[in-house]
Simulated assay, not measured.
Amino acid sequence: MNTAARTVYVNGQYLSEHDAKVSIFDRGFMFGDGIYEVTTVLDGKLVDFAGHCARLGRSMRELDMKTPCTDDVLLAIHRELVARNALVEGLVYLQVTRGAEDRDFAWSDAIQPTVVAFTQVKSLAASPLAARGARVITVPDLRWKRRDIKTVQLLYPSLAKMQAKAAGKDDAWMVEDGFVTEGTSNNAFIVTADGTLVTRQLSTSLLHGITRATVLRHAGDTGLRIEERPFSVAEAQAASEAFVTAATSFVTPVVEIDGTPVGTGVPGPVATRLREIYIEESRKSAI
């Protein structure tokens, strides 16, 4: 991580990260009453920004949260942060909370959103994890029932990631009623023995991934057969390939699930090719 002080954005101001402050009465801090988006930066440009803005708007509507500004203003904020921090590759994190007022479960009509954003330097295109493939464990999905809203309520996924780390693995897949919902911070896919790409259909059970949608479009363009349906842990272990998608990990192969190798136990050709296509097309379409 870059150790130099970053310029961050807080409620209309660009500040040194050391000077940035948010009220202790902010509902994001007290209630987890906030949402966020993470936009990838490649070659100093924003990837899938329109999709992230659309999902942010949907999350705000689902939570009856006031819209703090237009998409054009958000784009200007993102570009300004990228420029001020000379970010070439990494991400911009944006968080919107309902706002700050004296603690009460109910909020007033007068409350105004808190908006913060910052950059992170991260090597994305050349990923050692993608090259070797991720090893995952499975855990029960104990999150709330509105996982389609990208909230800051990330305690359980964080605990699951730490459980995987303690087991010497890279990540965890969450399971509900015998079927995989998603990873701790990514959408899950498998490739069956007959070459069909399978991922769970959109619902309130999982996040509607922006990278997921883009990868499915690329997969369709290559002629892959696609099924959007649930799959079990056993089906995933028996698959020829598995992978995950997310804004900052693109397409990352999964080579082991609960100690069982997937396919040949190394990144497969479908995931490898889809990752190549995603990076290539993202560089072309980034803004």
Rank of each mutant, 00 (worst) to 15 (best):
A4Y: 09
A5W: 11
T7L: 08
V8W: 09
Y14C: 06
S16D: 15
E17H: 14
F25T: 04
E37T: 10
T40F: 07
G44H: 04
G44D: 01
A50T: 10
G51T: 05
H52G: 14
A54Y: 01
L56W: 01
E62G: 00
L63V: 00
D64G: 01
M65N: 00
L75I: 08
E80V: 01
L81Y: 11
N85I: 04
A86I: 11
L87F: 03
L87T: 05
R98V: 13
D102K: 13
R103P: 02
A106L: 12
W107L: 07
S108K: 12
S108N: 12
S108R: 07
D109E: 04
A110P: 06
P113S: 07
V115L: 08
V115M: 05
F118R: 09
F118S: 10
Q120F: 06
V121A: 05
K122C: 10
K122T: 06
K122I: 11
S123N: 12
L124V: 09
A126F: 12
S127W: 01
L129G: 13
A130S: 15
V136P: 06
V136I: 12
T138C: 05
P140I: 08
W144Y: 05
K145D: 07
R146I: 04
A160V: 09
K161I: 08
A166Y: 14
K169A: 02
D177Q: 12
D177C: 13
D177E: 14
E182D: 00
T184M: 03
A188S: 15
I190F: 00
A193C: 14
T196A: 15
V198H: 01
R200D: 00
Q201Y: 07
H208M: 05
I210N: 09
T214A: 11
L216I: 06
L216S: 05
R217T: 15
G220W: 05
T222W: 05
T222G: 08
L224G: 03
R225D: 15
I226N: 15
F231N: 00
V233A: 13
A236M: 15
A242N: 03
S249K: 04
G263T: 10
G265P: 08
G268P: 13
E281M: 13
R283G: 11
K284S: 11
S285V: 00
I287W: 06
